[in-house]
């Protein structure tokens, strides 16, 4: 059986849903028995991106907002690789949103997994594009003025053939199933995972 763990212990806060996503990925990689030499995971910057250190696979811990273009480049360079991009709502729906749309339009066969905690959590809790309107955060003391982005609806509008799903980390088995579906589906995949940030997201519950 292939070992997909680097041996480095995760550093997320106790109770963080990022552990569910990590476990889901470990289970799925093991179940699908992917060729480890042909599997590349590209991580964004953020709490969830820190998964880079905990996984044993070819990887790139890229830049904030830039995990998707890096993943697209890798897939274009070698279409035989399984390519997964993992990041947060801040990186993927904020700074990297145009990359998400471009990849969905290209219908390129990669899987994008988003830990959507509706916050910039690594930087201690500023608002992100998916923070509900009116929510008070460190960067929006009077409440978020903008309407929250609906990522799955957006991507389905851009590419009707894309596999785009929203799953809550409170249901880990569904997370596993959705990951398996996304990684095996040929074409573009967006897995938007509802993720609780226990340290900065209590007002969002």
């Amino acid at each position: 059986m292939t070992n997909w763990r680097s041996g480095i212990a995760p550093t997320w806060c106790p109770g963080c849903h990022d552990y569910v996503i990590f476990a889901g990925l470990q289970n799925t990689l093991t179940k699908l028995n992917l060729d480890q030499d042909r599997t590349v995971i590209v991580y964004d910057i953020g709490c969830i991106g820190n998964m880079a250190d905990f996984v044993k696979a070819w990887g790139v811990h890229s830049l904030h907002g830039r995990c998707i273009p890096t993943a697209v480049g890798i897939k274009l360079a070698n279409p035989e690789l399984n390519v997964i991009a993992i990041g947060g709502d801040g990186g993927i729906y904020g700074e990297g949103l145009s990359h998400l749309i471009a990849a969905a339009r290209l219908n390129i066969d990669i899987t994008v997994i988003v830990a959507n905690n509706h916050l910039y959590s690594l930087t201690t809790g500023q608002s992100s594009p998916t923070t509900p309107k009116g929510t008070k955060t460190k960067s929006t003391p009077k409440g978020v003025p903008s309407i929250a982005l609906m990522p799955v609806e957006l991507i389905k509008t851009v590419n009707t053939e894309a596999n785009a799903e929203h799953i809550d980390c409170k249901e880990p088995l569904k997370v596993n199933e959705a990951m398996e579906k996304a990684i095996t589906h040929k074409g573009f995949n967006l897995l938007d995972l509802e993720q609780l940030c226990v340290s900065f997201g209590k007002q969002l519950k």
Binding site: A52, W58, G59, H61
Partner: peptide, 8 residues
């Protein structure tokens, strides 16, 4: 080759 993480 030996698996590597490219890290920023």
């Amino acid at each position: 080759q030996k698996i590597k993480l490219y890290n920023s």
